[in-house]
Design a protein around this nucleic acid. Structure first.
Length: 457
RNA sequence: GUGGGUGUAGCUCAGUGGUAGAGCAUCGGAUUGUGGUUCCGAGGGCCGUGGGUUCAACCCCCAUCACCCACCCCA
């Protein structure tokens, strides 16, 4: 093409007014709930030093960090080197998630509250191939509790996200719970070499997508013995699916485990489940011993939010007690959870879960044979009454003006003709019903308020 | 990154070796201050880009780019 493409880059979107209305609606629910739980807002830069970002997400994650090329002389010098490496070319990268920037902030500002509860709603970027519900630029909505070792932190975080989803109208989500130490214990019990632990985790994480046979094949290609693979799958699949309740599953796994740390993790999960019964997450959680999660920094309980009709998750999180220590001398415990805004929007869109959301002005001011000065004067008077008013800007037939009002979603139209202007009146019309009345200009807002279906978003 | 597919109007897509269509959208009209339906009409495309075959290419061939689907990974 001779002209540049007008499509946004793959994996990014333009948000048109109707999209913004839906996004703001969801974000406002999230913020209301988060703030109601005592979380305070934080924003961090779009890009960070690469040294901040790399080495936190695992090898796969590091590859997906967008690098910002050096500029001008620094770039020139780097390119002139004989053996140019990746680190010569860039020292900055777009943030990959909101957790690592938070950890940096906590290590930097030592006078934050001892128990810092923050929420953060900002875009993150991943150099990934886009797919259904997957983007290269997307928003995460994080809540984290810093400085708390007790499971109250987990319960608060999970309670908050459960409340968000409930208020948005989700009735079928599941908080899947697992524990990194339990996973390690199970893998150890199955006889997988400690060196293969990470690869085993990656394979296991695909269980719900490729099934037990798929995982078996995956484990084999990754060099894990068939015996160990069989034992692992027996523990995680057969026993897990045979168990009728989380309590029963806990008992079965506890009996099979040959790892004290694993059993301790299991106890922690039991304690957490008991706490969750006193939060909005009650009845919404389930033990999922196969849940692994890719990110490298988790150390304790981990969670993921599932709904039936989405292959990926609506969000996830976990405890990361060692991450902040990577930025400073002090080791500070932390736990958090992230909701994927576009995942939520995607499912809500497909299920038609949005309430009516108005995007246009409340009132379209149409005119006939009126001077522009009088038209603007009237618009200002209406706006002073608190109405959201758009002025139809050209001399056109009234029918065209009303059609336009309807097409932009304005629920009301005002007609200002020479008669009305002379009398200080305006004719108001409710487009949906056709009801129409001529009223004094200063009574316009009252007339509309009496008929407005609902407040603006 | 590997395999498969698709590039034609703003959008969704037909189409034939002889220099292009539909639906939707947009704009205009169907008599004077009243929209959503209907009818009529108009604008808008070097048919992704660069080469090749041919008297002739949107169509055949090669290359290139972009996008889509799967694998991989994640919110």
């Amino acid at each position: 093409m001779s002209k540049a493409s007008t499509k946004p880059p793959s994996g990014t979107r333009d948000f048109l007014p109707a999209d913004i209305a839906r996004r703001r609606y969801v974000v406002s629910v999230i913020e209301t709930v988060y703030q109601g739980s005592g979380f305070v807002p934080l924003e961090t830069p779009s890009f960070e030093n690469l040294s901040t970002l790399l080495g936190k997400y695992g090898d796969e994650g590091d590859q997906l960090v967008y690098r910002l090329l050096h500029r001008r002389d620094a770039l020139k010098r780097a390119l002139e080197k004989d053996d140019v490496s990746e680190s010569d070319l860039a020292d900055l990268g777009l943030r990959y998630d909101l957790t690592v920037p938070l950890a940096r902030v906590v290590a930097q500002y030592r006078d934050l509250p001892r128990f810092f509860k923050r929420y953060q709603i900002q875009p993150v970027w991943r150099a990934d191939r886009p797919g259904r519900g997957r983007f290269r630029e997307f928003y995460q909505c994080d809540v984290d509790v810093i400085g708390v070792t007790t499971l109250i932190a987990e319960a608060e975080v999970l309670g908050a996200v459960a409340e968000v989803l409930t208020r948005l109208g989700f009735e079928d989500f599941t908080l899947r719970l697992n524990h990194r130490a339990l996973l390690r214990g199970l893998i150890e019990t199955a006889g997988v070499a400690p060196a293969d632990e990470q690869t085993a985790l990656v394979a296991l994480d695909k269980l719900d997508k490729v099934g037990p046979d798929g995982v078996r094949a995956e484990l084999r290609t990754r060099g894990i013995s068939d015996d160990a693979a069989a034992l692992l799958l027996e523990l995680l699949v057969e026993k897990a699916s045979a168990a009728k309740s989380d309590d029963e599953l806990t008992e079965v796994l506890g009996a099979a485990l040959r790892s004290d740390a694993g059993r301790a993790a299991l106890d922690q999960l039991s304690e957490l489940r008991a706490l969750l019964d006193h939060t909005p997450a009650k009845g919404r959680y389930r033990l999922s011993p196969e849940l692994a999660r890719g990110l490298g920094y988790y150390t304790g309980p981990i969670f993921e939010i599932s709904v039936a009709d989405l292959a990926g998750s609506l969000g996830g999180g976990g405890r990361y007690d060692d991450l902040i220590g990577m930025f400073g001398k002090q080791q500070i415990p932390a736990v958090g959870c992230s909701l994927g805004l576009e995942r939520i929007l995607l499912v809500m869109e497909e299920r038609g879960m949005y309430p009516p959301l108005r995007v246009g002005p409340e009132l379209m001011l149409c005119s006939l044979d009126v001077e522009p000065a009088a038209l603007l004067e009237t618009a200002n008077a209406l706006r002073q009454q608190g109405l959201s008013v758009e002025v139809f800007p050209t001399r056109s037939k009234l029918g065209k003006q009303l059609a336009y009002a309807d097409s932009v979603g304005a629920p009301f139209a005002a007609i200002l003709g020479a008669d009305e202007a002379a009398a200080g009146d305006v004719t108001l019309k409710q487009l949906a019903s056709g009801e129409q009345a001529r009223v004094a200009l200063h009574e316009a807002a009252g007339w509309i308020a009496a008929r407005a279906p609902d407040a603006a978003p």
